[in-house]
Design a protein around this nucleic acid. Sequence first.
DNA 1: TAAAAACCCTGTAGCAACTCCAGAGTCAAG
DNA 2: CTTGACTCTGGAGTTGCTACAGGGTTTTTA
Lengths: 165, 165
Amino acid sequence: MKIGQLAQQTGTPVDTIRYYEREGLLPRAARTEGNYRIYDAMHLERLAFIRRCRSLDMTQDEIRVLLRFRDTPSESCEDVNALLDAHIGHVAERIRELQQLETQLQVLRACCKEGRQAVACGILNELSQGATEVSTPSASESHLSATHAGGRQHVTPRKQATRDS
Amino acid sequence: MKIGQLAQQTGTPVDTIRYYEREGLLPRAARTEGNYRIYDAMHLERLAFIRRCRSLDMTQDEIRVLLRFRDTPSESCEDVNALLDAHIGHVAERIRELQQLETQLQVLRACCKEGRQAVACGILNELSQGATEVSTPSASESHLSATHAGGRQHVTPRKQATRDS
DNA sequence: TAAAAACCCTGTAGCAACTCCAGAGTCAAG
DNA sequence: CTTGACTCTGGAGTTGCTACAGGGTTTTTA
């Protein structure tokens, strides 16, 4: 089976499959004479596994760990449990953060009724307040770690992949 | 005031300030003879504004919009309200997604008690199931848009900035 | 006054997990 | 034999920074 079919059967973009191969999540595929990748049922299953993990928002590193366990079936699976527990913890924490964030945003939103001029906008004014003292150097770490840690993740994807153009 | 002081007063890393300038969020600073950036109260206030927005997890584009409004005080602020409402919507949606995710993860977690061998691990087996049919091509869009859209964000930052080293 | 420490500069590369594109080759159908 | 669908590689872009390297400048200390 060629890459396009594998893509279709797993709902994975072709580019992503090649990317997984580069990253070592998928083993290198055999090639036809014309240098096309060919896959078998094992690849399909492995890719499906990966995608299921990704749909649960696991990182590649986490998935790598799980794959290693799959590949060495005699090991105990305690670490699998631990990994999952940690992941659940991450998710729960992020939910808490976002809930706090939502509350803050709603407070802010309540500062302004429609139709004022921007100069009188309660929201803009609120955001402008306390200019000399932001993200209190001591008492941060609290509500949004994005600044202090790796600082990637956002609330939503927001930008469509412009697949249609 | 030099960049280091501005950094300290706003709790912003120096690199980030320069980055904001490159991105056009902060206007270009004046320079001393030795080519050092110098800032005044206006810069401080603007940076504080930006940081407050970021702490509410707004994107640079959203912040740009808000800054434009701040800079044209006679405009009506309806769009500010709209922007905030949209942002709150994003946050709320992400919370819902993550809550569904958490549920799924807990179901998965319940598949395995401690100490089994990996070959018998309920979790690995569950993740391996249904290999021929994943992320149903029609019924996706549902719980995790990360795949279909820009595909960045993750559940948690996870990787420390190794600021201490 | 000179050396050392602390600060600042530019430019580039890296992160996560892809996505998109260009420019080229391969293959099946008409 | 051409058209079109598919595939290949390699590289750049996404977001919001962070982390150097390899310099220059200012301030502090001896």
